[in-house]
Each structure stands twice: as C-alpha cells, then as structure tokens.
C-alpha cells in the first residue's frame, strides 16, 4: 500500500490514480470524439464517491453514532467499494434510457478510464513493468478509437472484447484474477457491455 502525504492528509495511491484517470480519460475522450464527455461521467463518479464515503455509516454504525464526524475521515472500505459499484450500475442503467449517447460512449470511456487508472496506479507505486504495459495499452486503445472514429469498426462489440481481454491479461500478469482490481474491472466491463447492448435492442425495436 503506497501512501502519499499531501499537506496534512495522507492519500493512498489508489485515490490519486482514480483522480488522474478521471481527468485523463475525459481529456482523451474530448480529443477522440471531438465532444465533451457526457454529464453521466461526472454524475457516475460523484455517485460512486458519495456511496463509498457514506457507506462508512452502514459498516461502522457504532463508531458513527458515538462520533458522527468520523464519517468525514473514513470511508466504507472494500465493502463500500462494492456497494458503490452496484449503485453505479443502477444509475447508468437508468441514465441510458434518457441519454442515447451513453450507450455509444460507455464502453470506450470506461475502458479508457480503467486502463488509465491501472497505468497511473502502477506509476505511483513505482512498478515499472506494469506501468509500461498499461500505458502502451492505454495509448493503443486511444489511438485505435481516434483513427477508427468514423468507421463501422468503432461500434463493433468484438473489438471491445479484444481490448477488455488485453487489459484482463495485463492485470493477471501482476495480480491474482480474484482480487479487487480484476473483479472491479470485470464488473465495469459487464456494465459497459450491457449499456452498449441497450442501444442495439432499442434500434431493433424502432426498426
């Protein structure tokens, strides 16, 4: 566990990597698609953050009742992370019904976000091989998306399965398959594929 001291607080590398990935993916998406990233992206992150933070109350009820301010300092930990991921999936599933672009953008954006997160985390933890591999993958995905942005292949599910598996392979070189990061990635990928399917089923209905 790598920690960084910023002023009077200590931040785990995971938090810093999340913020870096959030910003880098938004900028990358702006360049790739020529559009601002959807509002859903920031909403989804805010929702994740609030559920993860507030779930401290749920999992540490006694401590919270004795000293309510403790919720400011702590979070729901691994259980809170899972709860927040579930909330994220529910939010995105509801949002996709309103915003058609979400269905189109969810896969590339979530993929960029997660691979960017892994690259940033490996850099912060000074793991050279992992950071190089994840960065190469991030740049390859971004380059592919940019080059093919006006071609039919950009919408092909298969190419995304390929990218997701490439990230899965890179992850599993450095950590066991059934640990928090690979499971989180699998969950995000499943959510994104489900959102992409939504558009296809809608199109068929409308046709």
């Amino acid at each position: 566990m790598t920690l960084y001291q910023i002023g009077s607080i200590t931040m785990p590398a995971v938090w810093i990597a999340t913020l870096i990935a959030l910003a880098v993916s938004a900028v990358a998406w702006r360049i790739i698609s020529g559009e601002k990233i959807g509002e859903w992206y920031w909403n989804a992150f805010t929702l994740y953050f609030l559920v993860w933070k507030a779930s401290y109350i749920l999992f540490n009820f006694e401590e919270f009742m004795n000293f309510p301010m403790s919720v400011l300092y702590f979070n729901g930990g691994a259980s809170g992370h899972m709860l927040a991921l579930a909330a994220l999936a529910v939010y995105l599933w509801m949002a996709v019904k309103k915003h058609a672009a979400l269905s189109r953008d969810a896969l590339p954006v979530l993929l960029l976000f997660f691979v960017g997160f892994e690259a940033a985390l490996a850099m912060l933890e000074q793991q050279l091989a992992a950071s190089v591999l994840h960065t190469i993958l991030f740049v390859s995905i971004a380059a592919f998306l940019y080059i093919s942005r006006k071609r039919a292949i950009a919408g092909s599910t298969q190419i995304y399965i390929l990218f997701v598996l490439a990230e899965g392979l890179t992850l599993s070189i450095f950590q066991p398959l059934f640990s928090v990061e690979p499971l989180t990635f699998s969950w995000l990928a499943l959510t994104a594929f489900a959102l992409a399917r939504f558009r296809k089923s809608e199109v068929i209905i409308h046709e």
């Binding site: 091989a129 992992a130 390929l162 598996l165 490439a166 392979l169 070189i173 450095f174 066991p176 398959l177």
Partner: peptide, 17 residues
C-alpha cells in the same frame, strides 16, 4: 487472449513486483 489469461492464472507464476 482468453487462453493466455487462463494460462497466466492457472499455470504460470505470479509476476507481482
């Protein structure tokens, strides 16, 4: 890729740094 993931996880050692 699927086979490679399976191979890395079930056969090979972990390269955790």
């Amino acid at each position: 890729l699927l086979l490679a993931i399976a191979a890395v996880n079930f056969l090979g050692p972990s390269f955790a740094e």
